[in-house]
Amino acid sequence: MKAIVANTLIDGEVVYWNAGVWVTRFGQAQLFAEDEVAESALAKANQPTSVVDCYVIDVAEEEDGYAPTAYRERIKALGPQNHPQHGKQADGGHDIDLIKQAHGIARSAGRHALIKLKK
């Protein structure tokens, strides 16, 4: 699956594309089953006067929903891991929990859990 991520031009906040509007949580993002559909949505989404750094990301299916595949995109969807009270993770919710628990994170024992790719 794919989704489209960007930062808003005016304040830099991470946003996701959903059928013509930008939403602030990954859980609200539109998911695209086909790459071509995502690419054509990107052309529409990439509006230079409202967003910057707009691109398509890979999304992986987890047991209970979806999470970005790359840990870079997971951190973007969550917030910095050294400040759990900062960023989108502070609001909690199912989509946040799901990304936090996406494959790999539950396996590591340390205080700072690894975010790993699905094996």
Partner: peptide
């Protein structure tokens, strides 16, 4: 121009 004023775009914000 923004870089010359120390402004980057990072993951979560500027």
């Amino acid at each position: 121009l923004r870089l010359m004023n120390g402004l980057y775009l990072q993951l979560h914000a500027y």
